[in-house]
Structure formats: structure tokens, C-alpha cells
Write a protein that binds this DNA or RNA. Structure first.
Length: 201
DNA sequence: GTCCTGATGTGCT
DNA sequence: GCACATCAGGACA
């Protein structure tokens, strides 16, 4: 599983494109967390897009606040927030500066560094941040370098088995197919429901 | 398998 | 005051 992974960090230009494009392209990439001598690596298998002040599920729906300011900043940075009294959520800022958008990293296929009995330690955005670990101390940091970054394999192969479905755990904006996941991958947070598609449109 | 609940803190609508 | 981009555990069937 953890063969000879030679990972190359994604560049800022990767993140500053349209959010749905970045979301699809993040599948199959690797999230790397480094803390002292420890290092966790997980393959991204599920993401969700939150796009702009017109998206009722996006935190920026009500405009810029101190919490959402990072989403208005430059692409390639981490937007992390705390919810339900106990979980952190990791997002990747996308698009141009001043346009608020981000991608929630929802699930990873463990590659290395994970310990414990849980066979699916990062199958969900809350579990992911608990296992790596990721908290508010990383909010606003760059994802282009350690201690938290995303890389691709030197010989990156395109991912074919992408499906799009409604986002999970929201009450408004459920008509949009802005959740992307690797079809058939057992580390996705839930089984696919009937409403999924080959395209987000 | 399904549905429902409790745990818990923060930002704001 | 209340909603919330969650999760694990329980009660069913």
C-alpha cells in the first residue's frame, strides 16, 4: 500500500481555478500531515464544494465575517472550523482572492501513519481531523508545504471513477451535485445514494 | 439494514 | 437562543 510514494506538492495555480474543477482533481491526491517525527498520509477519496455568497450551504452565504475571512483569501490555504461542539472540518480555499469558496475534505483512504483498530480512521470530515490530527492551530496555513500539504504522485494518473452527488449534512442547497467521490471506494463516508451523476452539472 | 438520539462549543442567520 | 458541512450507539425490523 505505502509503496514508493514520491509526492510532489500541488502548486498555488492548482487551487486558484474553478472550485468544481479543483474538487474533481483533488480526488486521488494525497493529504500529508507532519508533526515532529510523525507523518500521516491519506489518499483523498471524497470532497465537497462550497462556492460563493450565493450558495446557501456555504459559510460565506451571509458575507464576510471574521470566521469566513480565510475563504476570501488566496487559494491553497486551509480553512478550518469547529462544529457540533467537538469536531474540526478541513477545507481547501480555492478561486481568486476575494471570491469566497472552499472544498471540504471529507474522507481519506489511509496510506501510512494511522494507528489503532479503526479500519476507516478518516472516513468522514470529523474523524479525519481527529486522526491526523488537525485543529484550529492550522487554520489559515498554506497547504503548499509542511506541516500540512497536499501532493500528487510523480507519475500522476488521471482518475476516472468519479461520481457527483448532493452534499451531506446540509439543509439548503441539496439540489446541487457538489459532492465528489471515488465510485466504489470503501473509504468514502457513506454509500452512494441513488441521486448521483457523472457530472456536477 | 433503517431511524433516532445525545454529546458538546461556537458564531450568528 | 438556536442552528450547525458530525459521529457512535441504541432501538427497532
Amino acid at each position: 500500500m505505502a509503496k514508493d510514494l514520491k509526492l510532489i506538492p500541488l502548486t498555488q495555480s492548482f487551487y486558484s481555478r474553478s472550485t468544481l474543477e479543483v474538487a474533481g482533481n483533488l480526488l486521488g491526491k494525497y493529504l500529508v500531515r507532519e508533526q515532529g517525527r510523525k507523518r500521516w498520509i491519506g489518499r483523498i477519496v471524497e470532497v465537497e464544494a462550497y462556492i460563493g455568497e450565493d450558495d446557501p450551504a456555504c459559510h460565506a452565504f451571509h458575507g464576510r465575517t471574521s470566521r469566513t475571512a480565510i475563504m476570501y483569501g488566496p487559494a491553497g490555504h486551509a480553512y478550518i472550523y469547529f462544529t457540533y461542539g467537538m469536531y474540526f472540518m478541513l477545507n481547501v480555499v480555492t478561486e481568486k482572492e476575494d471570491f469566497p469558496a472552499a472544498i471540504l475534505i471529507r474522507a481519506l483512504e489511509p496510506v501510512s501513519g494511522f494507528s489503532g483498530d479503526d479500519l476507516h480512521p478518516a472516513s468522514g470530515p470529523g474523524k479525519l481531523c481527529k486522526s491526523m490530527p488537525i485543529d484550529l492551530s492550522l487554520n489559515g496555513t498554506s497547504l503548499l508545504r509542511k506541516p500540512l500539504w497536499i501532493g500528487k504522485e510523480a507519475h500522476d494518473h488521471s482518475i476516472r471513477e468519479i461520481r457527483w452527488s448532493p452534499r451531506i449534512g446540509i439543509s439548503a442547497g441539496t439540489e446541487k451535485l457538489w459532492r465528489a467521490y471515488l465510485y466504489g471506494n470503501s473509504y468514502v463516508s457513506r454509500k452512494s445514494n441513488s441521486n448521483h451523476s457523472l457530472s456536477p452539472f
